[in-house]
Every structure is written in structure tokens, then in C-alpha cells.
Amino acid sequence: MKRLIDCEKGEKVKVVKLNANYDLKQRLISFGVMKDAQIQVLEHAPRKKTIEVKVGKMRIALRAEEAELIEVK
């Protein structure tokens, strides 16, 4: 099982599943992070604490804790 946090910078992946709780899941979905969405990892903050990803045309920032909950392939 691969998680978004495990992705390298520049890597493009597809969302398989969101393991987040209800609220966070709704939030991610409203940002376009849902099943089958394409995600590209753009930047890592120091020590991968926070990452910047691109979903569609939108760039979003996520913490490592959140990125761990997103299953990708």
C-alpha cells in the first residue's frame, strides 16, 4: 500500500482511497482529492513536514499526517 507521503517530488499518482475521518474526508473531497483523482507532488517543506501537491489545476498544502491517510497508486 502506497501513501501520498511516500511519493517523491514530481511524482504523479492516482488516489485509491481516503482513510481520513469524516470531516477531513469532506474537506479533501471539496478540494478535489477523491477517488481516481490525479495528484502530483510539487514540493516538500523541511523534513517532509508539509507537502505541496497539485490536483487538477489547484495546488494544495497538506501536512504529513494528512498525506499519510491518502492511499495512492
Binding site: 479533501l28 478540494f31 508539509t50 495546488r59 494544495i60 498544502a61 501536512r63 494528512e66
Partner: peptide, 11 residues
């Protein structure tokens, strides 16, 4: 507990 951090980065 800590709240998730998910934020849009505008262009």
C-alpha cells in the same frame, strides 16, 4: 488533538 492542515495555494 491537532487539526488537519489542508490549504489552497493560490497562483
Amino acid at each position: 488533538a491537532d487539526e488537519p492542515f489542508v490549504m489552497e495555494m493560490p497562483k
